[in-house]
Design a protein around this nucleic acid. Structure first.
Lengths: 179, 179
DNA sequence: TCTATTTATTAAACCAGTTTAACAGGAATT
DNA sequence: AATTCCTGTTAAACTGGTTTAATAAATAGA
């Protein structure tokens, strides 16, 4: 969609560049989430953790807008981790500044609505796959859609993302090469 | 949030009242989805169907805005069913008219953005529960959050919504009364 | 280079669900 | 009242995953 140049410039002034080293966190449980991020370079892993271990919800890589959207929107402290699995370069904008952009311009408000639509659709697809596909199908699909992940993050994180244990994923892989 | 009266009136003029009888469909696969709905009275079941049977994604009841949001946003023909499990009274607005409202008013554009946020958060929670809770926990939570459903829709639909077979849900119920 | 740590595979026992099928109670149809 | 259909439960056999533990292979640190 088109945003007029003046409005775009107005918004861009707010973004700040951030470096996060591998193993560092952008978000931890109990923290308030007041920023939206854009991944310029690197990979971060978004996960929850309870007594039964960690559950990877999403991987964010180059070109993606991201944050703990639930905590961001609701203003409820996060219950999740956002951890760099590599050194990262990220742009960030505060919620306050994002809202300033929306107030300032109908175009930006629309951009906000469409971005939210976009995030919604991604989550919707993910939800559908979780409901309708087998673990093996989801593994094959991920392999096809985001092959880079298999090169850059350990397999046990991918297993968790797929809703499996490392052992379970290993079995699926074995089953596949056998056939 | 507040919308000024003139803008609200402008939008409300577009809504039309609709009656759907039990067993009728508001949406079927292959159809384009060009309307947004508000449930005034009744209950509809949103589900997909493939060779391995139906999968209930959501139930919509009184007071909820709804549609096949994925098909609505993407303009891709639906892959799902939206079926009345009871006689329903529904208000509908066309996509075209909704966009007219957004164009006409910054307030309504914002309302659109916030509604999308709302839908996103619901889906997000649902996704989290699917990932983090056991079938039994999800059953108990549904029982607590939407007790009305258990009175108005057959148990095999609820089983499907929970990602179970009717047999599976029956076992869980049995296990629970035993303890 | 050696050691310690992290990651991936395998095996064995186990378990929560599935599939299939039989059956029983209720509601709707005749 | 009899019949049919729909819904929910139960039982038995099965299955795709889990858990635990041992082992191997790769990586990082000293």
């Amino acid at each position: 969609m088109a945003i007029n140049d003046a409005d775009l410039d107005y918004s861009l002034q707010f973004y700040k560049r951030l470096h996060i080293e591998k193993g560092e966190f952008l978000i931890r449980p109990q923290q308030k989430v007041g920023h939206f991020y854009f991944m310029q370079q690197g990979c971060m892993c978004y996960y929850t953790k309870d007594d039964s271990g960690m559950k990877v919800m999403e991987f964010f890589t180059e070109g993606q807008f991201f944050t703990d959207l639930y905590a961001y929107i609701s203003a409820i402290p996060s219950g999740s981790y956002l951890e760099a699995t590599e050194d990262c370069m990220v742009y960030s904008i505060s919620k306050e500044d994002a809202l300033k952009s929306f107030d300032h311009s109908h175009d930006m408000e629309r951009f906000g609505r469409l971005s939210m639509q976009d995030g919604f659709m991604r989550l919707f697809r993910r939800n559908n796959h979780l409901k309708n596909l087998s673990n093996q199908e989801r593994y094959l699909r991920l392999l096809q859609k985001r092959p880079d992940l298999f090169q850059r993050v350990p397999q046990y994180l991918i297993a968790s993302y797929l809703g499996l244990t490392p052992v379970g994923l290993s079995k699926i892989r074995k089953r596949l090469v056998a056939s």
